[in-house]
Design a protein around this nucleic acid. Sequence first.
RNA 1: GGCGGCGUGGCCGAGUGGUUCAGGCAGGGGCCUGCAAAGCCCCGUACGGCGGUUCGAUUCCGCCCGCCGCCUCCA
Length: 463
Amino acid sequence: MLRLHDTATGEVTELRHRTPGQVSMYVCGPTVYDAPHLGHGRFSLVFDVLRRYLLFSGLDVTYVSNITDIEDKIIERAASRGITPTELTDHFEAVWWEAMDALGVLRPDEAPHATDYVDRMVALITELMNRGVAYEASDGVYLSVLDVPGYGLLARQPLDSLRAGARVESAADKRSPLDFVLWKKAKPGEPTWESPWGRGRPGWHTECVVMSLDLLGDGFDLHGGAIDLIFPHHENERAQAVALGRDFAHHWVHNGWVTVDGEKMSKSLGNFTSLDDLLTRSDARAYRLLVLRSHYRSPIEVTPETVTDAESGLARLDEMARRFGLPDLLASGPVVDGAVAGSFDAEAVSRFRDRMDDDLDTPGALAGIFDLVRQANASADDGDEVAAGRAAGTVGLLAAALGLPLRGEVSTETDPVGADLVRRRDEAREHRDWTLADQLRDELMALGWVVEDGPEGTRIRRP
RNA sequence: GGCGGCGUGGCCGAGUGGUUCAGGCAGGGGCCUGCAAAGCCCCGUACGGCGGUUCGAUUCCGCCCGCCGCCUCCA
């Protein structure tokens, strides 16, 4: 049974399933006004791994993740580029999915857009008004947080301290500085929708309430996102649900930062690396491995060194996969424990699940996988093909459970130049002409090949 | 100011009151190899500082130092 840290309680508790055998999860997606950076990549990978692990465990998972396509930054960015907000969001949504595909992140079952839910947001705000917890001010409609029991639960701060820290807002007629906007009244040049309070657009915190409840229903199991969403975004989502008397998310899961030189990576600090930058420089699987090497709640430091480190680890896995000719188990979708043909080390799988069940201890799970790699190679060196094959196959299975496909296919390079050099090198080695053989190897390496001599002769492959 | 997190061997990064352990990367030695590469075997006696609790603390408590985050848009 999976136990996960719950931000609402601060404790690691069992993930409840509203319906036995099924898990409903909602993960806050991106605001598509710019290209995704490493932080977006991390949260996407973390929740992808959580989702895949639930699937691996034999559960049905409904995964909803939204696209925020109406928001201040979108309007500003579009204006500065002289294009419409829709043109901007269409573009960056396409960029988003491209990056997700490159990372091997499964597409959500549903990816609702805020702009498709405006009427339902208006309905929700109306109900909050009817209940007397929302009020109209000069520039919009606000939720009165003082009327929401337990406000501050996720922030884990008493209301007073939140209030003390709140910045004075522009709207002079807000009842409390903590009250947050549900509906923004129209300003010139902005996209607007009709509402009982005049034309305008929804505030950010309402869309996720509406979309999660609409697509997953009341009392869904898990709501996730990066740590910075805890306050105010998730706090405010929860406040609306509470004010409506509706059962909201039962488990709150938040992942830690990507840092650079120990500092939070963010667009406002300007120290971010775009996902695209990383993916053109490095194997996307290396970033998944890098993310998995740390606990999801810890900060991860992404530097050229840590990326190289992860690449080396990945190469070790691939090398083993090649040695044993492992198939790509992810070619046909996520893997489910017990549904994959082959001989596996049941104890190792059990240890893996123990690690994962313990608040998604991916570092521990990976340690077990690397142990199996060593076992597989050692057994093969000893000539125990059965044990070796089982250990190697288990590595493939468990890596796949984490969404990490291994490159096990034997190289079928047909490059004529390379093949010719290999043939000449094999001849030279047969004649014990080591000088020529070394020279040919240098040529191959200069062409970018990895050269390995085995009992059957020289093999080359791309690194 | 309020709230919270972190400080582990060259680097990354787990974990635990005490005989042996994470794991990865890098490094050293060895085996294998014509030489390599890959692989295997062996090697590092680390836990910010000062006290306290204890037979014994990296692990528990207190204080201190340093770093980071949230309280404002932010993944």
